[in-house]
Design a protein around this nucleic acid. Sequence first.
DNA 1: AAAACGCGCAACCGCCTTGGT
DNA 2: TACCAAGGCGGTTGCGCGTTT
Length: 285
Amino acid sequence: MGRAPCCEKVGLKRGRWTAEEDEILNNYIKVHGEGSWRSLPKNAGLMRCGKSCRLRWINYLRSDLRRGNISKEEEHLIANLHASLGNRWSLIAAHLPGRTDNEIKNYWNSHLSQKILPSRRPTNPPAINLIPTINNRKDRTSQSTMKINKAHKVSPVTNHKIVQPEEQPTKQQTKVDSCDTSYEDEMLCFIDNIMDTDMLTMVEGGGSMGVTSEPMSVTQAMKDVSGQVEVGGSSSSTTNSFDNWSWDFDIHEDGVLGFGGEDDGNMLSWPWESITIDDDSFLGV
DNA sequence: AAAACGCGCAACCGCCTTGGT
DNA sequence: TACCAAGGCGGTTGCGCGTTT
């Protein structure tokens, strides 16, 4: 006997949403707010499943959505985050204001995966050992995380990957496995992974870069400085190694991180926003 | 002009965690 | 402790549309 459907599907409409349905849903949420998705269709007069309403709202109708082409900066960010986080789209989406996990997932599958994976797959798997700490779903371990942890035999104590004797650890794995288990250390390792594995590759690929003194602010709303850590030494205008940069970043309790000064109010800003580089060389095409 | 093909994206599905009882 | 409802996530599907033959 199968699992009961999430809602009574007999008579419910499926497929593409019409403009009228969008308007009904939009108006209802404007008045009553989000939530209670299961009862929403009935109350709003929609012949749709609650899940469908929720998805339509989150992925399409929300006013804060940023629709349109993915910029090169966003593409870089997705590429870097995916390199460290794997297919955890909601977490990646949390770093791109206005973008949905579905949109990023689709973009990855249709654009980036062909560009990046053929060249990275052999040596640069996702840094699975950081999964629990940087999960934005509070204390939860997502199903995919569980699958990954199970597949890679993650230690339940440290959440670090247990490298099997026959396995040849990659550069990234070796680097991260040496990390301490404290929250801050894991965040440092996470950032180190992004910078070291991807951006150094980018630099070595022939790009040139310059660092501006003022990071670009993406959002003020997420300001929540819970840690200030400086990595490396003084900043320099041109360098072949991020070790020489002065990274002033913020660690948020839910794992969101950003770059910026303590007093500048920036929560999310990214170094490549001030980098001049050949995009194609970075993406390996 | 029409059929075949391929791609992008919206939507659906199944499974999971959380929180309430 | 067990159960259930609700919400959320990632994987997958399939439709619509542009391009090619």
